[in-house]
Amino acid sequence: MSEAINKAVLESTQIAIMEQLPETGVPARSPLAHQQQTASRTAPENPGVYLWESALKTHLALRGDANNADFANGVEAATGLALPEVLQSNHNNEWALSWIAPDEWLLTGPGDQALAMEMSLREQLGGHYAVINVGGGQTLVRLAGPRARSVLMKSCPYDVHDRNFPVGKVVNTVLGKSQATLRRVGDDEWELVVRRSFADYIWRWLVDASQEYRLSLEQPTQGASKNRAGRLQASPVEN
């Protein structure tokens, strides 16, 4: 993207665009930083559930008409990702693009890329659309492990069974008495988009629901949560 376009986008009088991140040296505090600080660091043996925050990412809400080629092609040009179908997601190494509503998608990715991505999108998109930076207002929580699905069954009324919720599917639903957007990112791994102000409640809810399955508050090492056979055996309450 050229400097000229960059400047033009930034100085647009139609839409207010803003670099929202400080230059350097200013500490950011994620919505769950306090929980991370106070959490016990001793992971149990053979955890059934892993829970951690994937903090300080870029979150951009995209609004537009999927039938408008300028919009659909523009999103793909800017993100490298095709607009996902209903209740689906597409992702590459950096970015994930999730269907939220017929005219809304959520783009998440590296935390320092919000402005660059917004400008790139605005440069590429045409027609009636909107890009909204919502990164300060929500965070990503990762839930993994052989009993992650059991924790979700305790928390959400939505059917999280393999047959109804394959990898890649995205669903916004009730969680406890709050809500979250669930994306299945692996056989035993889920990403939850939660609102900042509710994050503490949701975190405590998930920790509570995980108690009987041995909870680790660390990201699992490669392969630790891949034990599918073990999961089925360990899940007499699941259907």
Partner: peptide
Amino acid sequence: PYCGEHREEEEF
């Protein structure tokens, strides 16, 4: 009719 599937009443 937009999500194309049944959902629990709690969501509505």
